[in-house]
Design a binder for these strands. Structure first.
Lengths: 340, 340
DNA sequence: ACCATCTGCGTAATCGTTTGCATAGAATTT
DNA sequence: AAATTCTATGCAAACGATTACGCAGATGGT
């Protein structure tokens, strides 16, 4: 019987000899409704298994109870964990979560955001693509009174709350650890500098060298080296051109994984001849051979905070923006432990 | 200027000296509207950057242009790939995709489906949780005229389209390969038998033995062994109790990964002393040491087909249900190659 | 030339909920 | 007791798009 799902507040009102307005208010716990009526209404709603028409409600209210999460990719450890944090938080507040992947394509991202605007989502939690700054679309969302919270890769020319790691300190700490291990010619595998996070990670690398009184060597910088394939290619080049390095610090785990495979295959001893460290603490870093030192960003916490913040902003227009730095942890593993 | 986004078909109608009905029809390419009017309307809409109020439209039509994807987890290779297939397909048709994780919790799943029903999503593409058959909620969705397509773990007592692998044949092929490699005491790591897919994979394991004229050994069955931790525990037990095996076939990659780590740590040679094969072709199976033989389910294709099918069913009430088997591939790797 | 059909568009109702405004009666103040 | 303020509810208008129905004029068949 689909009948039960067709019950509206009108039906309830008629049966209770009252009006839809009262029923609506009672169900929404409007304080202007007496305790008695509220209970009567709710009891009848329960009895008939009344299901509110959320679309009608959203329509009337001019917005949906949906928060969109826009990320480059859901199958990265960082993002799937952040999403988990977001979901659990928003579910509590009865918000729906719409997860959207951009595949790191600025065009897809722009289209998606526009579609979200049309759908009048209440909020967008976004880690922007890393290829190009897609300011316009996001700004349009803000102009349409959609709350936006940025995390991870943040566009700084847009005024929103931001939750992120201190990528600078994190990678500085990682590289310092490598320097303390005695590595002196540390290659840098770095993602595109169109993204703040890679800029910061590179800065951290440089700062660590400076603190150690060591001049970084430009020839050891491999830019746009972020995927496994790119990491492999870089490692191949290192071997072929006989580039003198004793370690690799990568701004992402996948690139250093690629390098690890190539180097291992070439018979190079890790961490003795070449040390390796990545970033993001992808699960595989723990169980590949050798296990790879990496930085855990605590992304579930980031997601949780982002969700809490966007809820606050949605429910209360006056909420001030939040800029929060979430602490992560450097996870030491075999790939950099050449001293005991 | 938020003004532009506030334009409605009424505004357009007024400016064109016509009615909202005509504008609506023109924008929707209703054949009863003349080419000339259609063009005029669209031109003006373009000029004013008219954005339809999708919520209003959905409200009037009584359903949303959203398809939900319900999976236990988005960070499994199988699911994230399937989702990718689904998304690209649905995006073409201007449908929104709502990705929902159940974390394999039947309760979360039931709640979620109910919420989706309230949101009047057009369709649900679901891989049910593997713990318990959650028939009721899904049936309710169907009763609410929501199209449902099942994939992966399928509830057979619900009448829907289903897209899946032939898990039986796939695991039979895998185990046959192991038997051909000379393995004779192949332990079975198996997920919960409340799920069809694990039942089928176990059956495949048994069938392969039968075909080879070998009696499977009950003592080598490890049930509810699916996660990495469970795989590790099983391997530890095998070592401790000195259980005599020469291979492990696991219905999932994570369990066999766990076993691999424990066995390697114990100094056991893989694949010489013990061979390993998993299922799902998680990315890590390729790059761990040794690389792990696994079965690739071609899940992106599964997602694509599921999306196509649900679109057909949504747009045309009469579409018959589809039961499709998608072919996958056995990927041979080091962990089972003890002969050349 | 007459009736039927088709073409192109307008009228107005409708989807279910929310909410500004009004109001009747109760409670409180003066 | 009159005036004021609350309290609890009703009335009715939204929100923006879709669509069944109607109708005038054009087209076509006989």
């Amino acid at each position: 019987m689909t009948k039960s799902s067709k019950i509206t507040i009108h039906d309830l009102a008629k049966e209770l000899n009252t009006t839809p307005a009262t029923v609506s208010r009672a169900l929404n716990d409007n304080p202007r409704i007496s305790e008695k009526t509220r209970k009567r209404v709710k009891a009848l709603a329960e009895k008939h298994n009344y299901q509110p028409n959320i679309i009608a409600s959203n329509f009337r209210k001019g917005r949906s109870n949906t928060v969109a999460v826009v990320v480059p990719n859901i199958n990265r450890h960082y993002f799937s964990n952040a999403i988990h944090g977001i979901e659990t938080e928003l579910a509590k507040a009865d918000y729906n979560v719409m997860i959207c992947q951009t595949s790191n394509s600025p065009e897809t991202e722009a289209k998606l955001i526009n579609s979200l605007i049309n759908h009048k989502v209440s909020g967008i939690i976004i880690s922007s693509n890393k290829k190009s700054q897609n300011t316009e679309a996001l700004q349009k969302a803000l102009d349409s009174e959609i709350k936006v919270v940025q995390f991870d890769n943040v566009l700084s020319n847009i005024e929103t709350s931001c939750i992120f790691n201190n990528d600078f300190e994190a990678s500085k700490a990682t590289v310092l650890h490598m320097l303390k291990q005695g590595y002196r010619r540390i290659a840098l595998f770095c993602g595109r500098l169109t993204s703040n996070i890679y800029q910061d990670r590179k800065s951290g690398y440089l700062a660590a060298h400076e603190e150690f009184g060591i001049k970084p060597i430009e020839e050891l910088f491999f830019h746009q080296t972020n995927t496994r394939k790119e990491g492999e290619a870089a490692a191949v080049r290192i071997l072929k051109e006989n580039i003198n390095i004793d370690a690799i610090f990568s701004t992402g785990d996948y690139a250093v994984l690629g390098a690890s495979l190539v180097l291992k295959n070439a018979g190079i001893k890790i961490p003795q001849e070449i040390g390796l460290a990545g970033y993001a603490n992808e699960p595989f870093t723990e169980f590949v051979t050798p296990s790879i030192t990496s930085f855990d960003q605590n992304s579930q916490e980031i997601g949780k905070i982002a969700a809490e913040q966007i809820l606050k902003e949605i429910e209360n227009e006056e909420t001030p923006h939040l800029k929060t730095i979430v602490q992560g942890d450097l996870i030491l593993r075999e790939s950099t432990q050449r001293k005991e």
